[in-house]
Design a protein around this nucleic acid. Structure first.
Lengths: 332, 332
DNA sequence: ATCGTACCCGAAAACGTTTCGGATCGCAAG
DNA sequence: CTTGCGATCCGAAACGTTTTCGGGTACGAT
């Protein structure tokens, strides 16, 4: 049925050793023989079996893409990162297999064991949170891994994330430059690593602009539209003088916009709004959302790149911060 | 380093044959022996090597998810389908590896060969078009496959798609029921299979409602926002009496909305608009978009399900039509 | 004593590769 | 004539499993 190296050897009148060498560019095979072997291999449409090769080489050239929670909000984010990871890995000749944590299978065994079973050489992790039970495993295991959006660094674990601190600074600076005086901040789920970073960014940026702010003007929501709307309502009740709000995600910002529409608050005249993420949606809400863009595809590609360098050149893992970009539209 | 079946055998004082049998539930192994083997295996944290097993069983329990063009518009669509495919396959104990057609690697060898190299047992295909060179390969190859959104049926190839005809009918019926008299249709890229289906749906639905329409009121665009806007402009020029438009995609419909805003056309008073896809965006544009929803996750899950049944029970492939749903919001 | 019958268990082949350590040959050098 | 050597090739082991086939043991019946 399937044509093996033995078939090629027989058809070319040489040993399988010679076929292997001829195909893999080994040096001790005659020029004439190599030509014949290549020709026969092509005629038979021979494809070397990756699983047999993996077995003997003890390398699968296969890496896992671990998605901690597949059906969480950030579709766009996940998808773009995924494509970035795939493209870069394909470029290096690696395959990628999907690994999710929320299927019944993975509940039973640890994800490291899951990868060991499949001889995955490494793994790119995304969608994980600080309070996730996986964090410990990722950090301590010897399985090479790169985490997206969570600053985990160890002997075998690196990370790539957006430079949230500077991203927030761009936003705050823009608000200050356009004359806003009382800036509120609606942050995300407090156990998300990005929330911590963005809070730090907010505080340093405010201080950098010499702008006073009170604890009252910093709220937490849950990254959803409804959460954003509710949080904004509370913020405005606490601090009625607020004339600008920075949301830690576009979805929450859109919730904010909806709240304003419902209350007759004019954007950006009465209140300026800036989000974070640059989801496609933001371009189409009215007013169009000013936001901080993350280089999603690049995050995936860079993560893959770092993982490959760890595997091939056994480079030390590192932490990479990718520059965000302020996208000014109508809402601020 | 890694613990193999041999280590377990040694530690348990039995042969590797017995270990294999004990772990896989073979029947001719003593109860006491089995207990001991299981215990030792657990203590050593033994994980059977999938690649070794794949080699001897000649089955990889691994299926490919072929994405014809990763970075085309339909992010949401692709992602949801992907998750559906993954979840269902995980449930059955299959792994899924990503296969894309637009990397340099896949340009060199056919996708069937790509799958053969990796011993993939089957493949779910999405994002493919009628004029795609892959179509022929998918249909003719003996590699079990299920195609999303393209009605390809052969000995080893089935498909699952939304019931576009009925989806369109729901939309048209809604427009007719709300008193619209002159309905236009802006279709997508003509080589997309769904476009053909949707055109068919439009024609039968219009006839079903006893509503006259001219060829002039049917236009083609390219599934993009800009394309939708331009197409609507031309439609209104050709047929100024138009009081409702059905777009073959939400993105194009949103383009239509933008055009209306720019021209001062009121929605839905002057013009009713309905889209197709139910992308997240539609909920947030103003006016909120009325649209036909596709069961994206279910499409992926059903495709996976069918593929597994082909593999395990060698069932014949079939064509599955999933019911769409009309989501009425503000634009019609 | 012989036979049959369960019941356990192991040796070895097989899956398709890569690679190590020779083997053969021709030819130049001693 | 031996020796050495480069060039070219091959045999066989190894990777970690599953499975076929057969061997052994114990026990009861003939």
């Amino acid at each position: 049925m399937t044509v093996t190296i033995r078939d090629v050897a027989r058809a070319a009148g040489v040993s399988i050793t010679t076929v292997s060498r001829a195909l893999n560019g080994g040096d001790d095979v005659g020029e004439e023989t190599r030509r014949r072997v290549l020709e026969v291999a092509k005629k038979l449409n021979y494809r070397p079996s990756h699983v047999a090769r993996s077995l003997v080489l003890q390398k699968s050239r296969n890496i896992g893409l671990l998605v901690s929670d597949f059906n969480r909000g950030g579709h766009h984010f996940m998808y773009d990162v995924l494509v970035g990871v795939h493209d870069k890995l394909a470029e290096y000749g690696y395959d990628v297999t999907l690994v999710s944590t929320n299927t019944a299978r993975q509940q039973l065994i640890s994800y490291v064991d899951f990868c060991r079973e499949r001889s995955l050489e490494g793994v790119v992790v995304m969608g994980i949170r600080l309070d996730d039970p996986y964090v410990e495993e990722v950090v301590e295991s010897t399985l090479p891994s790169v985490v997206i959006d969570l600053p985990l660094l160890s002997r075998h674990c690196g990370y790539v994330m957006t430079d949230n601190v500077n991203g927030v600074r761009y936003a705050i600076r823009h608000l200050a430059n356009t004359g806003r005086q009382h800036i509120g901040f609606i942050n995300g789920y407090s156990q998300a690593a990005v929330s911590i970073e963005r809070l730090r960014g907010f505080e340093t940026a405010m201080r950098g602009c010499g702008m006073p702010y009170s604890r009252d003007s910093i709220l937490h929501a849950d990254f959803t539209i409804e959460g954003g709307a509710k949080a904004l309502a509370e913020l405005l009740e606490r601090c009625p003088e607020t004339d600008a709000v920075f949301f830690a995600s576009d979805l929450m910002a859109i919730g904010g916009i909806q709240h304003c529409k419902a209350c007759g608050i004019r954007i950006p005249d009465d209140l300026a709004i800036i989000g974070f993420d640059n989801i496609e949606l933001g371009k189409f809400v009215t007013p169009a959302l000013t936001t901080v863009a993350q280089p999603r595809y690049a995050m995936g590609a860079d993560a893959a790149d770092m993982l490959v360098r760890m595997l091939q050149d056994d480079e030390q893992p590192s932490g990479i911060l990718l520059p965000p970009e302020l996208v000014v539209r109508e809402s601020a």
